[in-house]
Design a protein around this nucleic acid. Structure first.
Lengths: 331, 331
DNA sequence: AATATTTATGAAATCGGTTTCAATAAAAAG
DNA sequence: CTTTTTATTGAAACCGATTTCATAAATATT
């Protein structure tokens, strides 16, 4: 590896001038600039990002924290971010927190130590009190998940109306007994109902349908979880005629198990998912779901953080995208 | 952020001594060691990885290059690597090459500039001539894909026998007209047949069945690709009675389209996939496939690269895992 | 008791860049 | 034709750690 000194020596100029050429400073004559460029070319020189970082320079690398990269929702989100970042000359570091607050903090520390210029948090495992500490060390933005009492820029999806539209659709189809599955719980860390459960309850309330707590399943994440939910539901004396699942995978599990047990979808049980993952179209019947515009969300978040990094104050510190309702065969 | 100088000042000792404590050097008295530790504690000091890198120190971060993170095969592979790495105190940086040789090189450059200590390549877009240059800058290992003329450690799956067993199974079921889909081509960059196509041809040859080039489809990657393959196959006057697809997604596409067109699986067309992704069990009928032991493969690759980094010569520079045949309903 | 070795410490150099500061040359203004 | 401003360059300091080298004290060896 050649260094800036090698380039300086070969071009017969000082390190300072070479540095000026690298960083596109004015006040370097065309001839010297060419001289430096030729020397850099000849030595196939690239400045060491490590050394640049030492002087507090930014290094065009952005971290993205996700819970689980195997979750297609996150892998598609990360993919969208990465594609655009590469175009813009930024490098993306993907971090998997597994929902572990400590692991999440270990990644946020990379901001402190200038390993990344900024961080996009697509999931959040710590509370705002803890996260706040890190905001001094570089820009952070929420994308997808967020903490409502934070001051960070947020790119999110209108989950309330997403779920609301889905449930309303079920009600319009005549359903009055509606089950509800969610990956987490119904509540934020502060005890308030989260957006999805607000959307759910709003739709029911408007139709004057009471919530039946026996039909609510929390912490349901995988296909297998969905199968278990279906088993439990089918064994109920008084069972729901429709189920909303907060993820297509869980919905897929419910659908498969339901069919395996000889029930018809949507006639005996209607199912509605969330995300619109590729598998939604693979199922038989195809899954009605609520699409999360992941690409758009990822791109917005990246644009936001870059505009902060480059000193352009972001136009909107709050971006809300709509989650369209996609009707297919399962409702 | 506090620096080593702050710690030195607070503890009343020199930077050198502080550095010695950080790096567990002998020749520091117990008392001073305690003094330094107390000062570090008090200032909640962590050494700057950037500064350490400047001095050529390793930084316990490992890069993993994949083609597409949204491909479940890769996301599960990366997941396995990440989980184990975190346990071992290493940090994983995931890089997406999209199969673009230039992008791949831009990531390999991080090795050159000490941004990562080593790189696990799960896919490869450049030839060995080009990659060789980078091997001087830090350890690289192949995991999954590899170049046969390279000198790098390899963790791989016995694809030859994986495919061979699958095709043999079809032949035993009485199939004589067997189609073949692959994500890439049939050949390595050096013109030789790749492992999978060797397995395919070996099985056919043993049964004295000639290869029909019209039933071979290259560059098939997605569910949609699979659907198109199915459409083409169905329209053939003389069509295969069984199809092997080099990925479960393509197999899924074939299966769905086949059924949509009113053919029965496996009676009219048998389908066999590759990978054993979660979606294989979602299909109706469930997909017969060849499992790639991704977790094991990822973990082995990580252990290998760490043992190289830590100076322990790796026991085996060549690890081969078997790809078990998983029979389900589609054959 | 004299000498050699081991233990313990810090000043200064170093890594590869950027930034500050001073100096000089050229152009513009008075 | 001076004075001021602007353009152009390089020496040296700096970022935060490690490493080299020198030195002193304690211990071991002869």
């Amino acid at each position: 590896m050649s260094t800036i000194s090698d380039v300086a020596k070969l071009s017969g100029l000082s390190k300072t001038t070479v540095s000026r050429v690298i960083n596109n400073y004015p006040y370097v004559t065309k001839e010297k600039r060419e001289l430096v460029k030729k020397a850099m070319e000849e030595l196939s020189y690239t400045p060491s990002p490590t050394a640049r970082r030492m002087r507090g320079q930014l290094t065009t690398s952005i971290g993205v924290i996700v819970t689980r990269i195997v979750n297609p929702f996150f892998s598609y989100l990360v993919n969208a971010i990465e594609q655009l970042a590469y175009k813009k000359g930024y490098q993306v570091l993907i971090f998997q927190s597994n929902g572990d607050p400590e692991k999440e903090l270990s990644y946020l520390n990379l901001l402190k130590t200038k390993q990344v210029d900024g961080i996009i948090m697509t999931s959040v495992a710590n509370d705002w009190e803890t996260l706040k500490e890190y905001t001094n060390f570089g820009p952070m933005v929420f994308c997808n998940e967020y903490l409502s009492n934070s001051t960070l820029p947020i790119v999110r999806i209108d989950q309330i109306n997403g779920v609301y539209n889905g449930i309303k659709h079920l009600i319009e189809k005549g359903h009055k007994k509606i089950g509800y599955c969610t990956g987490g719980s119904l509540f934020e860390s502060d005890g308030k109902n989260n957006d999805r459960s607000i959307g759910f309850q709003k739709a029911l309330k408007e139709a004057k349908i009471p919530v039946n707590p026996r039909w609510i399943f929390v912490n349901q994440l995988s296909i297998n979880d969905g199968k278990n939910v279906a088993k439990e539901v089918i064994s109920m004396a008084d069972r729901p005629t429709a189920i909303f699942a907060g993820g297509d995978e869980v919905a897929a599990g419910i659908l498969i198990e339901t069919k395996d047990q000889g029930l018809r979808v949507p006639e005996d049980i209607a199912i509605i998912g969330f995300d619109d993952q590729p598998l939604a179209e693979l199922l038989e019947p195809k899954l009605t779901t609520i699409r999360q515009p992941v690409n758009e969300m990822g791109e917005k978040a990246l644009e936001l953080i870059i505009s902060i990094l480059e000193g352009r104050e972001p136009k909107e510190a709050y971006v809300e995208l709509t989650a369209p309702f996609i009707q297919r065969g399962s409702t």
